[in-house]
Computed example of a mutant assay.
Amino acid sequence: MSQFEPKYRPNGKTSLGTGSFGTVNLVQNIKSKQLYAIKSIQQCNIQTPYEQEGVEREIKVHLKCRHPNIVNLYDSFIEQGNVYMVLEYAENGNLYNYVQRRKRLEEKEACKYFIQTCKALQYLHEMNVFHRDIKPENLLLDNNNDLKLCDFGWCAENIHLKRKTFCGTYEYMAPEIVSDLPYDYKIDIWSVGVLLYELLHGYAPFKGKEYKEIAQNIKNGLIRYSSTISQDAQELIKNILQKDPQSRLSFKDIYQSAFVQRCFPQQQGCKINQIISQN
């Protein structure tokens, strides 16, 4: 850590938040003055071989990722038994806080972040990895307000291998997880449906005072939409949030949906049809 020094934010703190197993702080490289986010995992938080394996997998997978909508992991090292990850700094914070400040997003802006999340996840799935913890807090915004997926602490390799590890964030869990059934990468697809709903409403579709109530609402699958939400947005969310994983839309289907075709912002001369043709 000798090459870095703490960088204090306007609130007088260096903390950027917490991730799975660790904390994230803003630092500056002493020589280059470049800002980075450093995720630190204390040795005391790695208690079991399973947790050690998880940290090693997080680093291995993240180091291989090079995608415009995924936060870069530049380096990792161990110092005094603690694990440190040197990450790209996304200066505009996370998507959760961004949405909360605005109450909800207009459909075109929501679609932009929804598609950028889909593109990041599609890239991971093509690498035979799924994330398992999609939520607005794990979606960061850079200085151009473009989205960057972060926190690979719950990622898993081999997307078609069924598993039963209970993980993720309650409101974003797929029915198969809360029903204690084997699941695969299609839980990520479910999560982007929940994400789109939350971006448009300002809150997740399945709420509750405690986990049991949230889980029951997810199993019931009853979704109520605001009258301000367009029919094509409702249709897309409904077709993603299918209880049967095999019935959920693919990314190609999502890109070709009426909502995305209507709302996707024409950024940098890139049209949605170009994205479809690339995948």
Score class of each variant (00 low, 15 high):
residue 141 L to Q: 02
residue 182 P to F: 15
residue 60 K to C: 01
residue 253 D to W: 07
residue 58 E to R: 00
residue 207 K to W: 07
residue 11 N to M: 09
residue 82 N to P: 04
residue 230 S to T: 08
residue 20 S to L: 07
residue 92 N to S: 13
residue 278 Q to S: 12
residue 228 T to N: 15
residue 51 E to N: 03
residue 163 R to H: 10
residue 232 D to M: 06
residue 177 I to Y: 05
residue 126 E to K: 11
residue 189 I to Q: 07
residue 12 G to S: 06
residue 203 Y to W: 03
residue 182 P to H: 13
residue 85 M to Y: 01
residue 225 Y to D: 05
residue 183 Y to D: 03
residue 99 V to H: 05
residue 131 H to M: 07
residue 85 M to I: 00
residue 5 E to V: 13
residue 193 G to K: 12
residue 263 C to A: 08
residue 87 L to Y: 05
residue 239 N to Y: 11
residue 112 K to A: 11
residue 85 M to P: 02
residue 115 I to R: 09
residue 199 L to P: 01
residue 105 L to G: 01
residue 200 L to V: 09
residue 11 N to G: 10
residue 199 L to V: 04
residue 80 Q to D: 14
residue 5 E to R: 13
residue 274 Q to K: 08
residue 155 C to A: 13
residue 197 Y to R: 04
residue 55 V to W: 07
residue 15 S to R: 13
residue 95 L to E: 02
residue 194 V to C: 06
residue 107 E to F: 06
residue 74 Y to S: 01
residue 2 S to D: 09
residue 191 S to C: 13
residue 199 L to R: 08
residue 70 I to Y: 04
residue 138 N to E: 10
residue 114 F to E: 14
residue 64 K to E: 11
residue 231 Q to E: 11
residue 248 R to C: 10
residue 238 K to T: 12
residue 112 K to F: 09
residue 160 H to M: 08
residue 23 T to C: 02
residue 77 F to Q: 00
residue 79 E to K: 12
residue 181 L to H: 11
residue 114 F to G: 03
residue 176 E to Y: 10
residue 129 V to F: 06
residue 12 G to N: 05
residue 150 C to N: 05
residue 212 K to W: 12
residue 220 N to A: 06
residue 132 R to M: 01
residue 118 C to H: 04
residue 45 N to R: 10
residue 75 D to I: 00
residue 145 N to Y: 15
residue 35 L to E: 12
residue 241 L to C: 13
residue 88 E to F: 03
residue 155 C to T: 06
residue 3 Q to C: 14
residue 102 R to W: 00
residue 62 H to L: 09
residue 23 T to M: 05
residue 201 H to S: 03
residue 156 A to H: 02
residue 270 C to R: 15
residue 23 T to E: 07
residue 97 N to Y: 07
residue 247 S to G: 02
residue 17 G to R: 07
residue 148 K to N: 05
residue 77 F to W: 10
residue 165 T to C: 06
residue 46 I to T: 07
residue 203 Y to H: 13
residue 96 Y to S: 12
residue 126 E to A: 04
residue 58 E to W: 04
residue 91 E to T: 11
residue 76 S to Q: 09
residue 117 T to W: 09
residue 273 N to P: 01
residue 241 L to M: 08
residue 161 L to N: 06
residue 242 Q to R: 15
residue 204 A to L: 05
residue 21 F to I: 00
residue 270 C to H: 13
residue 99 V to Q: 10
